[in-house]
Design a protein around this nucleic acid. Sequence first.
DNA 1: CTCTAATTGAAAATGAATTTCAATTTCCTT
DNA 2: AAGGAAATTGAAATTCATTTTCAATTAGAG
Lengths: 159, 159
Amino acid sequence: MRESRVSERDRKIKEKKERLKSFLKEKGLKSTRQRALIVNEFFKADEHVTAEDLYKKISRKHRDIGLTTVYRTLKLLTQSGLATESVFADNLTRYEPLSADDHHDHLICLHCGSITEFENPKIERLKERIAGEFGFIPVSHKMELYGYCNACRENAQSL
Amino acid sequence: MRESRVSERDRKIKEKKERLKSFLKEKGLKSTRQRALIVNEFFKADEHVTAEDLYKKISRKHRDIGLTTVYRTLKLLTQSGLATESVFADNLTRYEPLSADDHHDHLICLHCGSITEFENPKIERLKERIAGEFGFIPVSHKMELYGYCNACRENAQSL
DNA sequence: CTCTAATTGAAAATGAATTTCAATTTCCTT
DNA sequence: AAGGAAATTGAAATTCATTTTCAATTAGAG
């Protein structure tokens, strides 16, 4: 059970790496050791990381990867559709793995800073409706809920 | 008709200036010529301005107001509840007048950059619902719709 | 293997926003 | 109305995330 879930995850990661490879070839760009390392760590982390976060993670094992290259690689992942950027209240750009065409929004805890993704079809419908009222053609949206997450609520006496 | 609408607006602005005055006194801060000028221009503009925008507007008439002071005054307005900050896709901080306790969200045109406010009670209910599903206590939210506004859609042949 | 174009890391540059600081101004107290 | 403490100001310096520059290195097509 656990076993199969792990390998399922690995399979997906592998597939994403393939997709990146195609993207690079298509654009006449090169596959490098640095890119492989960064992308690996990014998919392994599987959370909302800043370039700095990821750089620190990688630096523990590989002293020779530059922060600049991390920035550049995350940008590349975004362009290839394998990651998305989000900016929350702290104004840092965070990157998150993106599988195919999913759209999700975020719950952000004001206490611990944890970020949870959610998906809700009602938002999509609401979006259409509101846009319609203004004669607006909707392309994309962004919704963020700030508050206190389950864990913080339970731990805190004075929330 | 038009006459009364204008003076209604002026009355509201006046009231806001009074509120700022109270806030300043309460906090032991001072009413200065610069603050008056900046606040005036801000309420008169009545759109989503960056500190820079407002600075340029003011500089046309008053060469002696510093950008720093504009930043500081906008921050003050935010603290006193008379303005709110929003950050959209271009990552600039914009300020907008806030009357009492209204919450609104934004439609942002990807072509002309215009920003339209909207209010929708369904979003509030949806927020509660989603938060509930995650055991999350909602405090505030942010919703942005990006797309093409009515005017841009009409003008464009190829949108 | 060679050659060209892409990539790299370090350092410099950028740009919005904030902080510092000496000079000025406000406004409370007499 | 005058004095003086504390707040405010504008300019310049600083911060901090991110981007750009550049000389040296590397990938990979031919």
